[in-house]
Write a protein that binds this DNA or RNA. Structure first.
Lengths: 333, 333
DNA sequence: TTTCAGTCTGTGAACGCTCCCAGAACATTC
DNA sequence: GAATGTTCTGGGAGCGTTCACAGACTGAAA
């Protein structure tokens, strides 16, 4: 590889000094139009590209951001959201010439690595993905005072880690209301894990609409997996055979619930209406296709990035951003 | 943020010189046990973390790798493989203390950014994901002589960009053979785009088994989406109403094909057997669940990383790695 | 005792950039 | 024409490392 041109080469080619080239590079004041043009030309001629390492060394800014993916169980695989979020975030950050580093935080070793990375000053900010309640990493980041935001609230840290998220609670209300409007009388729900914002808030939305009709008997918990949806549905059916609708807090669990209902000889939606949540790719492939709540995943990711950049620029403080969901009517309800 | 300790501080604390500390840091020869211990202790005491920028500046090595995601159409969203690949790659790279930067290469602007990044010396290697035939980026990277490998072959560049991939061709043979063994006589196929390795090789495998019985009439092309699977199946059905099996080159397209078949009143698998490919998450949720071919995604990602690291270490040259697939029997065939 | 190879250590010189200061060049005002 | 600002430029210093080199200290062989 031929030696890359440095700021020196550009300066020589333009007939000015390093200082002037640096000023052009950083849009500083006080550069004569002539010098500016000469430098621009020299940069083009030499194919000069600024060396970020050298720059970071003196500015203490890195021009990159870490996205930390928590994967407590291997199961998170099933989450199709990651793809969208990673792409969207990458795109928006690139618009600002900030690069995105991905790090996993599954076990303590991983977490230690993240801390070392951040403490080493290799990132200007941190983007938390699906961080669970009580994750020690959050406290560590907090103590480092590095700009950090979460994509989806971090349960218990809503006031310390800013976040962007879909309006889970209102989404759950939309679905529950819809089921009520369809004339359903005995509406049950299968929730997500109660240490995740989706688990908690979708249940709250459900309860908001049903009030005291949302009895304990009609609530079961899953862990977002299809299998957990199957078994939760079975328990529900055993306890309340005459239920006529169920709001499932994720499409994947809803797919499981559908299987159980079919096995039990219940027709969907005739006997039992099923509502999902997410509008993920499985929603269209189930039989019948799922009526569900669409989350604006890309917008959530964009908002998260926006929050982080604001924080990094020191233009904060920032408020959480909650984005609206939408009812998608298919055939299951 | 309190000023971070430098190698100087460690040296002072340990009562040695910068050089010795550096030697300990890099496991150099010729450090006395006493000095070694003192430095280790000092590092722990001061909480010292090496500054990678400063190091990169002199070593010209960055300790990071870029993963370039091509997204020619927005559609690639549907690809559930990204998640797995990103996670696996991140994990394996982390084992070697290499960090993973994600960049998109959707349009020319993106590509230009990638080139600038790499040319700027910010990565030790490049990991190409789902790069299409004829992507100009490949030539550019080639001319930069930076270590690059692909996850899945780059069509037309198989001999210049090393890669790891699932054995698409043999996987297709497995499925086709299985359909034949089940006594199916008129077997059709829906392929992927013919500028992708999966599109090409899964068709080849199909043809390998069927020989001249794989007539043009029984072949239709899709673009990996569910919708394209629906319409391809419709065309097939119209042209050859008496087909009794179809091998679909992806699960998502297979889900589409199932919908068309159901709409046409064909029972699956009684009238028509359907075989998919990927064993992605939709495979289990379709009705009936898909018999399909499982790709070892995580292993492919691991192998890709291994190839790249070998190349970076200059321990190359390397050979492409092809990993075996497995037939997963469910109910659709 | 001298010689020599092998170990170990400290130091100056980069790496490529930005920051800051001193001073030159130019306008403007009295 | 001097005094005072304003714009612009060059170059030294320093960011935190590694690397190469020179020199000091060992112990064994001559």
């Amino acid at each position: 590889m031929a030696k890359r041109p440095t700021i020196h080469d550009v300066a020589a080619a333009a007939g000015v000094s390093r200082g002037t080239v640096s000023r052009v590079l950083n849009d500083d004041r006080y550069v004569s139009p002539a010098a500016h043009a000469a430098v621009r030309r020299a940069i083009a001629e030499t194919g000069y590209i600024v060396n970020r390492n050298a720059r970071s060394l003196v500015t203490q800014r890195t021009g990159s951001v870490v996205m930390v993916l928590s994967e407590p169980h291997e199961m998170v695989f099933e989450d199709p959201n990651y793809s969208t979020t990673i792409r969207t975030a990458s795109r928006r950050l690139a618009d600002r010439d900030v690069s995105l580093v991905i790090m996993l935080a599954g076990d303590d070793g991983d977490r230690e690595r993240v801390v070392r990375y951040v403490r080493g000053g290799h990132a200007d900010g941190v983007l938390l993905m699906s961080t669970h309640a009580g994750d020690p990493l959050v406290d560590e980041l907090e103590s480092m005072r590095i700009p950090a935001v979460a994509c989806g609230a971090v349960v218990g840290k809503e006031n310390v880690i800013p976040y962007a998220a879909a309006d889970d609670r209102e989404g759950a209300r939309q679905m529950t209301r819809y089921l009520v409007e369809q004339g359903r009388k005995k509406i049950a729900t299968i929730t997500g894990p109660m240490d995740t914002p989706g688990g908690i808030q979708r249940l709250e939305g459900f309860a908001d609409v049903l009030g005291r009709k949302a009895s304990k008997k009609l609530i079961e918990h899953g862990d977002w997996t299809q299998l957990s949806g199957e078994s939760a549905m079975a328990r529900l059916l055993e306890r309340t055979p005459d239920l006529d609708a169920v709001f499932v807090a994720s499409d994947l669990m809803a797919a499981g619930a559908l299987a159980t209902l079919r096995a039990a000889g219940r027709r969907v939606p005739d006997d039992v209406a099923v509502g999902g949540f997410d509008d993920s790719s499985v929603a269209a492939t189930t039989h019948p296709p799922l009526t569900t709540i669409r989350q604006p995943l890309a917008e959530v990711a964009e908002a998260t990035v926006r929050l982080l950049l604001t924080l990094i620029d020191g233009a904060g403080p920032v408020e959480p951003v909650i984005l609206p969901t939408r009812l998608i009517i298919r055939e299951s309800a």
